[in-house]
Design a protein around this nucleic acid. Structure first.
Lengths: 185, 185
DNA sequence: AGCGGTATATATCGGACCGATATGATTCAC
DNA sequence: GTGAATCATATCGGTCCGATATATACCGCT
């Protein structure tokens, strides 16, 4: 998905500024499976305006730089619906952790241990965070969107599986590593 | 990890051509957690040569274009070891599936169902493939590298968790979707 | 025998995208 | 009251991807 489509997606859910769009990929609903930077969001928004897919309203602010609130036009909504009708690209996972762990033999064992601990912590806290959001939404009494519910549940499940696997295999890896270094001496 | 480091990683394990390096990220050992394209591999290899991190030997081939086999120098090995001593970037997952499913309400239900089925199939076959490689390696009698063993196990586990979750939640999503559309009418 | 598809192999180019940086005021904690 | 974090827009250099160009060989199908 290109950044233009990603911006359409955020704006499809309601008006927003460029800054707020960025937040949607940093801490917001899309944080765990899509990303976009300022360097691509602002040019994309300009394109959206030029193509008549969005309109911007300038809010003069007390002190702070002027805020430009973007809102989709009918053309923009149609374009988004068309975009999500296209064939999706393959999901991809990019992990420096696995890359480093692949070369665990070339690293000091205590660094390997620290690396795994950090990732266990990171995956666990991400699962916890999503789960907290789910609980909050569920108990708020508001209507639950089935698509969003499935997506957030996926995140919890997969993060937990990853953390779990690391917890279970931390010990075996470390002892395998020390056995190997003994054999080499 | 930048492409230069990725090339160093492949060459650290033995000499290879640019084409073979590409395959290492397409079907080889790094396929599931790192990637690199020709458009970045060939320039990276040129840089490696210029920086004295690798040497290339031209193999004249029967018919086919000349093959350039790259091999690391001591400088190259040292550079790789230094590179994996650096702090890793955060793991990231990019999924068009989750993006589309987030907007399941805006899609025809049969497309949603087909989408989920395709991803279940894809995740399952990827897990199966890694597991087959693991079994083969294990029964080959060769010494098992603990780092690589952990990495491939991680892949199996996480892919299975993802496929499992989709199998369990396919039905609930679809019925949630139809309930919603009934309520809207 | 001939055709198309896939595999081997190197290389470049346009465009998309990221990360860092510039700018500048406000609010909040210590 | 000082420094950190937040709000807000914007650009720029550099990296990387995807498509394309260029060849040849082998395999299966008809």
């Amino acid at each position: 998905m290109d950044v233009k489509t990603l911006c359409l997606a955020v704006l499809f859910q309601g008006e927003a500024t460029g800054y707020e769009i960025k937040k949607a990929f940093e801490e917001g609903p899309f944080a765990h499976f899509q990303r976009a930077s300022f360097g691509s969001i602002y040019p994309a928004l300009s394109r959206l305006l030029a193509d008549g897919m969005a309109v911007a309203e300038a809010h003069e602010q007390d002190g702070r730089p002027d805020k430009k609130v973007y809102r989709l036009t009918q053309t923009g909504r149609a374009a988004f619906l068309r975009a999500i009708g296209q064939e999706p690209e393959h999901d991809q996972f990019r992990s420096d952790m696995l890359f480093l762990l692949y070369f665990a033999r070339e690293l000091p064992p205590d660094r390997v241990a620290a690396l795994i601990d950090r990732y266990i912590e990171s995956y666990t806290s991400q699962a916890d965070h999503i789960e907290a959001c789910r609980m909050e939404r569920q108990s708020s009494g508001a209507e639950i969107d089935p698509g969003r519910w499935l997506v957030s549940g996926f995140g919890v499940e997969v993060y937990r599986a990853a953390a779990d696997y690391l917890v279970r295999n931390r010990g075996p890896l470390l002892s395998g590593l020390s056995k190997h270094s003994q054999a080499a001496e």
